[in-house]
Amino acid sequence: MAKYAMILNYKNCINCKACEVACKEENGIELGAKAHRIWVGTYEIEGKYPFLSIPSSTFYPSQCQHCANAPCEEVCPTHATYYDKNGVVQIDAQKCILCSYCMVACPYDARYVDTRTMSVDKCNFCSDTRLARGLKTTACQATCPTKVRIFGDMEDPNSEVSHILRTKEHFTLKAGIGTEPRLFYIK
């Protein structure tokens, strides 16, 4: 059993959006802005020229947080959303009744409706694509030119993920609501 997690060295992000393209390509995500599993967010740059705030121009890649205490899993009436043996929050499209409760409950806006299967979809760490083929990286990680994303097993003390979590300060999103995300941002 693994406990998969992802670390985002978000300050390295250059907003090339190669991760978004790779995700769509690898996982066969529908075209269009609404259907996306991952995204790169940006702030408006603060301040007036020439006194612009450099930190406010940072890019923020994100996606499903694969919470250990996932609100979406808890509210699903049919267990269509479930944790797999590696702690990844998965969706069984055959069981999804499209009540959309998980979309309302997700504090990270990580879910959307796949209009081909008419079920809710989201990131699954490429479980049914790359990981199923025996690869050790996700599509977004593999394509990233500045190595923003690092995917791996938190349970394995020798993994890069475990090493970074031990040695670098990091934070999670909306930590105060107790969802225990498995996406960690390096400070």
């Binding site: 995204w39 967010g41 940006t42 408006e44 923020y60 994100s62 504090p107 990270y108 806006d109 999103l173």
Partner: peptide, 13 residues
Amino acid sequence: LVYPMQTMKLKEY
């Protein structure tokens, strides 16, 4: 639902 859940995607697309 009126408050946007824009976690770090304050200017998405």
